[in-house]
Design a protein around this nucleic acid. Structure first.
Lengths: 192, 192
DNA sequence: CCCAATTGGGACCGATCGGTCCGATAGACT
DNA sequence: AGTCTATCGGACCGATCGGTCCCAATTGGG
């Protein structure tokens, strides 16, 4: 058989796997399924990712990076207005978390699918949430709110609730109230 | 071997299984492990629960009932003060969701562990969240708030965020802000 | 044009797990 | 005491899955 443009092979495999993991969960997707979907031999996949765990970790790290990029893209136009930035982050999450068929935050799902705290996938998930919280705190501090800690935590609760609820009850569930909620939270914290 | 007090056998098996499921996740716990822990033969377990799915569904239904009972117990002393009732529900959830080693809401975890929408465990989880939302709406309506729908949804976002975040970041995570958050939300909605 | 490197595809292996079945044993009841 | 019944415990089966290995085919380079 022919050759592949090797440079992009790894990324393409990861894309395929990520799509399947998002749609059906990590445990529910077998390596054979990824191979069939991608149309390669087993050799190729195992060359790029020596084990399924490696693939899963790469998938989760990609989703973490994606989250960070989405956040930074969402807040960049609002530089200088940290309150609006917090709302924008919630809005972005709301858009993403209520798409039909979404299963919620991949990192949070990985936390549930890999209960062993020593599993690398579990660790990636934990690290992700710690990082998100730290980032929200940075922004909250810029608002000049008297108590930026609780402000950041409130926004984070909304986001986490958004993903949990949006995946289950969809756009007409509790997630529908999230953006307006975040606006009120930011206003209350900054105009007090 | 002897006989067991047959009437309670089913409940005891379910207790044992539920404890293991909570601690390690459904997929991570094998039936053999439940049997070993309970100290019975395979026959007995399969007589009470013909398949693992039956056991899992019974486990989740028990957790749903448990949630309902906890809610009703928490709000009964506050009859006539629906605003305080909403806060009490959040407080109860906060206590439960931040216990060390907790893996979060069992229903939400089941949603992640059983991605197939047709799986009975998945359905139990979806039904649970719809029921919780409906109950919160009932209470929110009694507050006399101008807009009880968003109030209920805001409380639900806090609760869902609480479970998601509490399991991962623990009692010092964003969950720490939840009760105070709920109080402010209720106050803002009812004094407007 | 030919060689070599790469790859697709499948056979294969071992482990795990859900589920079935059966023999052995221990209590309960008469 | 003896029988009957429920239970224990394990052998066993089939399916699935992660992972290894190998062969044949194809394509790019010399």
């Amino acid at each position: 058989m022919g050759r592949r443009p090797a440079a992009e092979t790894r990324a393409h495999i990861l894309d395929t796997a990520a799509r399947l993991f998002d749609a059906h969960g990590v445990h529910a997707v077998g390596l054979q399924q990824i191979i069939d979907e991608f149309g390669c031999g087993k050799n190729l996949l195992y060359r790029e990712f020596p084990s399924k765990d490696d693939l899963v970790v790469a998938y989760l790290q990609a989703r973490t990076r994606e989250w960070e990029q989405r956040v930074e893209s969402a807040i960049r136009p609002l530089d200088g207005d940290p309150g609006a930035q917090l709302v924008a982050i919630v809005r972005d999450a709301a858009d993403k978390a209520t798409v039909a068929g979404t299963r919620g935050c991949p990192l949070r799902n990985a936390f549930a699918e890999f209960p062993d705290p020593d599993h690398p996938a579990h660790r990636v998930a934990v690290d992700h949430f710690a990082a998100v919280r730290a980032r929200l705190l940075e922004i909250a501090e810029q608002t000049g709110a008297r108590d930026p800690g609780p402000l950041a935590d409130r926004i984070m609760l909304i986001i986490d609730g958004l993903y949990a609820n949006g995946a289950i009850l969809g756009p007409n569930g509790a997630a529908a109230a999230a953006v307006r909620f975040a606006e009120d939270v930011v206003n209350a914290a900054t105009h007090a």
